[in-house]
């Protein structure tokens, strides 16, 4: 076996894959969260739909997105392989265990939490990502007055046999910017009208919270980065940033649309 495959088939090599893919997904979460904050804007989805087009068509972002899909798959596969090895390492279990006496709950349930997240990712991508790419999403036309950019005239484009083309052009004659974009915002709005679907999202974000409270700092431990000076900072970011702030703001999005529907 070559040095490379030897390294990644070892226990520590597999853990390295878990750590690096995990941290890459953490970095994605930050970008995803900041981008999706545009859902909170009151502009009929103009900012969000323009952003969605950019994220799916800008080549460097596309490269990163394929890296991300690879990370998700690798993280899940390696987790499965490691878990199976771990089960094999203790074929006969204990009659009495007292895990809470020596370890936090999150650290002992990463597999279950991760499975919830994998199911969430599949459903989430099916609802938005797949629909955006192949699902026949209606288009919206935005006419923004150049003199007064706050004034946006929004019209639904009728679903016709000829699909409109995404455009973002300035019409100097009428003094306005015309944007025609796939209306992902509408898909989001419709999806989050269902209380059951929203409840599932909130549950998944709770799982994300617990997964990252352990996962973020654990990734650094696996990398061997446990400098006394920086560990408190990593723990702080892991618990307050990735464990609380990010899942809470994500959970606020479906709740925001649900309350908007009912109010």
């Amino acid at each position: 076996m070559g040095n490379f495959s030897n390294t990644f088939s070892s226990s520590l090599g597999k853990k390295l894959v878990m750590s690096l893919t995990g941290l890459f997904m953490c970095s994605f979460l930050v970008v995803h969260l900041v981008g999706n904050l545009q859902l909170f804007k009151h502009d009929g989805g103009l900012a969000f739909n323009t952003y969605a087009y950019f994220m799916t068509h800008f080549p460097p972002i596309k490269v990163v997105s394929y890296l991300l899909y690879t990370s998700i798959v690798l993280h899940a596969i390696y987790a499965l392989v490691l878990t199976m090895k771990n089960k094999k390492a203790r074929p006969i279990g204990y009659a009495v265990t007292n895990g809470k006496a020596n370890s936090p709950w999150t650290s002992r349930n990463m597999g279950i939490l991760g499975t919830v997240l994998l199911v969430f990712i599949i459903i989430h991508m099916n609802t938005f990502w797949a629909k955006y790419h192949w699902g026949g999403v209606p288009y919206k036309k935005y006419v923004i007055e150049l003199q007064n950019p706050e004034h946006v005239q929004v019209t639904d484009l009728p679903i016709s046999s000829v699909e409109p083309v995404h455009t973002d052009a300035v019409d100097l004659q009428s003094g306005s910017r015309v944007v025609i974009a796939k209306d992902l915002y509408l898909i989001v709005q419709n999806a989050f009208e269902s209380p059951l679907y929203v409840a599932f999202y909130v549950l998944a974000m709770a799982a994300l919270s617990f997964h990252l409270i352990h996962g973020f700092r654990s990734a650094f431990q696996t990398l061997g980065w446990d400098h006394k000076k920086y560990i408190p900072l990593i723990r702080f970011i892991g618990v307050w940033g990735f464990g609380l702030l990010i899942p809470i703001v994500f959970a606020a999005m479906p709740l925001f649309f649900l309350f908007k529907t009912f109010s």
């Binding site: 094999k88 370890s103 650290s107």
Partner: peptide, 15 residues
């Protein structure tokens, strides 16, 4: 030897 893989639970350190 067939030992399992660390998931950084910290149980070993505690015990």
């Amino acid at each position: 030897e067939g030992f399992g893989n660390c998931t950084n639970t910290g149980a070993c350190e505690a015990e």
